[in-house]
């Protein structure tokens, strides 16, 4: 069990090297002449007005919330699917009920107008 994960662990530890190496190579090879104008925020050509770190359109967060509900519920379906061969018809009924509740949640969200882009 743990030996299967050994490869993933080694991969995880080594994987930052592959993107980091070319970035470091660029830092070593490329020229280095920073100045104030070069380091300005690149927007419209004129000086940037205001801060970018703001609170923005709430709709994005509502979609993220809807996602959390659906994704967490969908994740619970994975064990059911993996053990599908051992399930009885009753177990399948329970799984179907679970999916029905998921669908019900979608209908509710739709009805409340959460899915409208405004």
């Amino acid at each position: 069990m743990l030996t299967e994960w050994q490869f993933v662990g080694i991969f995880f530890l080594l994987s930052p090297i592959f993107p980091a190496a070319p970035i470091i190579a660029q830092h070593l090879l490329g020229p280095r002449k920073p100045n104030r104008i070069k380091q300005e925020t690149y927007e419209c050509g004129i000086e940037t007005v205001g801060d970018s770190w703001i609170q923005f359109k709430v709709q994005y967060y509502i979609y993220a919330l809807a996602f959390v509900v659906f994704d967490v519920e969908a994740i619970f379906l994975f064990p059911i699917a993996a053990a599908y061969g051992q399930l009885t018809l009753f177990g399948i009924g329970a799984a179907a009920l679970f999916i029905f509740l998921l669908a019900d949640g979608l209908v509710y969200a739709w009805d409340r107008g959460i899915l409208e882009w405004v």
Binding site: P19, I23, Q26, H27, L29, G30, P31, R32, R36, Q39
Partner: peptide
């Protein structure tokens, strides 16, 4: 060509997040 370019980090950027994201 891209390797030989200058690496520019904007003055206003969050240095850690900016450099960590591509990796």
């Amino acid at each position: 060509k891209l390797v030989s370019k200058e690496a520019i980090t904007p003055a206003g950027a969050d240095k850690i997040a900016f450099n960590l994201a591509p990796i």
